[in-house]
Amino acid sequence: MQPLISLIAGLIFGAGLAVGGMIDPARVQAFLDLFGDWDPTLAFVMGGAILPMTIAWVIKARLDRPLAGGVFDVPDTTKLDRNLAIGALLFGAGWGIGGLCPGPAIADLALAPGPALIFVAAMLVGMGVHRLTLGR
């Protein structure tokens, strides 16, 4: 049951990435390109996504456990540290250079397998390098 719900959520998520244009690196870079022909579309994607999630957090506060069973597993750290800051800065740089963040990159495996695979493979290597160095 849980994997099925997860798959359905992934399907909807992937469809949203395609509909919203996040799967196009050129559009993402156009959003990040403040000094060029700025394209605000991604701000609408972010706003649109935050809306249902804001409601979801309100509902979550009234639930003892998730609807499909199990327990809530959400981060409870509030500490701002160097890893968070440097990690976010590195991620942002890669986002700008490649025009892709993890979700759209993986979604693009179905739409443009060649270039998407290059990015996703490099991304997994980057994750692996983190694990072997700082992740110990």
Binding site: G92, G94, A122
Partner: peptide, 8 residues
């Protein structure tokens, strides 16, 4: 980009 996104 992929390397930085993965690591970051």
């Amino acid at each position: 980009g992929g390397l930085l996104v993965g690591f970051g």
